[in-house]
């Protein structure tokens, strides 16, 4: 059973990128978002990053080599968001 965060991300992808012909439930959690998977492009990535910041309060840094891993799939994006939210909620040393 898919996690609620993954489901919210699928809806966010469809709504923020105006993918009118895509059912959020049809997006595979492990499938690549770019290229041969969902077929998103670099401008979609920018818009998705803005939507994630607005929805989850998580900002994606530009020129971070790990962005490719974070934005690989719904699953990797959800792991990235959980990790950033955990960092934000943990008390400062």
């Amino acid at each position: 059973m898919a996690d609620a965060l993954e489901d919210r991300l699928k809806v966010l992808i469809v709504e923020s990128l105006a993918l009118e012909d895509v059912d959020p439930q049809s997006i595979e959690t492990d499938a690549p978002l770019f290229g041969e998977g969902l077929g998103l492009d670099s401008i979609d990535a920018l818009e998705l990053a803005l939507a994630i910041h607005s929805e989850f309060g998580v900002r994606t840094k530009e020129n971070d080599e790990k962005n490719r891993e974070y934005y690989h799939s719904v699953k990797s994006l959800a792991e990235f968001i959980r990790s950033e939210q955990a960092k934000a909620s943990s008390p400062a040393p």
Binding site: S42, A45, L46, E62, N63, D64, E65, R68, Y71
Partner: peptide, 12 residues
Amino acid sequence: TGSDPLSAQRVV
């Protein structure tokens, strides 16, 4: 754009 999908911002 390089491997970082968000590098498109710099290109734009």
